[in-house]
């Protein structure tokens, strides 16, 4: 795999986020401030433009820096730093195993910056399981297609599992017990981005 794969993933993710925008807005309205859909859509549009402009550097690094610089909010620096860390961890050509390791590095960056752990009802609850599923699949010798599919499934399940949680990080934490009963918007967007990964993996 190479930069072209990363670009394809980012393009697919941009499409997924644009399509899921309303859903993310609705989720963030329930337990946040209602801007998660707009934030990510704006961010990934900028990513598309940055990639189209064809600047130098790993596409994931470009995307990460773009998200950091253009989105704002909590999700901008978190997703941005994760992608940047991933991009930095990848050589020009890489294997699925390299990708899995880079993905874990990105997830670690989210945890570090956000001072969050799984169970806090954040994007980490989708990203963490996805990283583990990816590593496990690679360890079991799965190919890219299967590995990405298993990661996406883990992310979806992880996102769904945030529903009963009481938030301890991010805006939703201000609601206390009332945050339970709603899916975390960041976990939902993470699942969308992982679905995009699986979709690109399937046709690669």
């Amino acid at each position: 795999m190479d930069a072209a794969f990363c670009t394809a993933w980012l393009e697919e993710a941009a499409g997924a986020v644009a399509e899921g925008r309303e859903r993310l807005t609705a989720l963030d309205s329930a337990i946040g401030d209602g801007d998660h859909g707009a934030n990510l859509d704006r961010g990934f549009s900028e990513v598309r433009q940055a990639l189209a402009a064809g600047g130098a550097g790993q596409p994931l690094t470009v995307a990460g820096v773009t998200l950091i610089r253009k989105v704002g909010g909590a999700s901008g620096p978190l997703y941005g730093s994760a992608l940047r860390a991933m991009g930095k961890a990848l050589a020009e050509e890489f294997t699925v195993a390299d990708f899995a390791a880079a993905f874990q590095a990105g997830v670690d960056e989210v945890a570090r910056l956000g001072k969050a752990e799984e169970g806090d009802k954040t994007m980490l609850d989708a990203l963490g399981p996805a990283a583990r599923a990816l590593a496990l699949a690679v360890g079991e010798g799965a190919g890219a297609r299967e590995a990405f599919e298993r990661a996406a499934r883990a992310a979806r399940e992880g996102a769904a599992a945030t529903v009963p949680m009481v938030a301890r990080k991010g805006r939703a934490s201000y609601l206390g017990e009332r945050s339970a009963g709603h899916e975390d918007p960041g976990a939902a967007s993470s699942a969308m981005i992982l679905d995009a990964l699986a979709a690109v993996g399937a046709r690669w």
Binding site: D33, D35, A38, R42, I68, K70, V71, G72, G76, P77
Partner: peptide
Amino acid sequence: PGEIFTSPVPD
């Protein structure tokens, strides 16, 4: 000033 209810960006 960031976008509505969205923190500004580092730049």
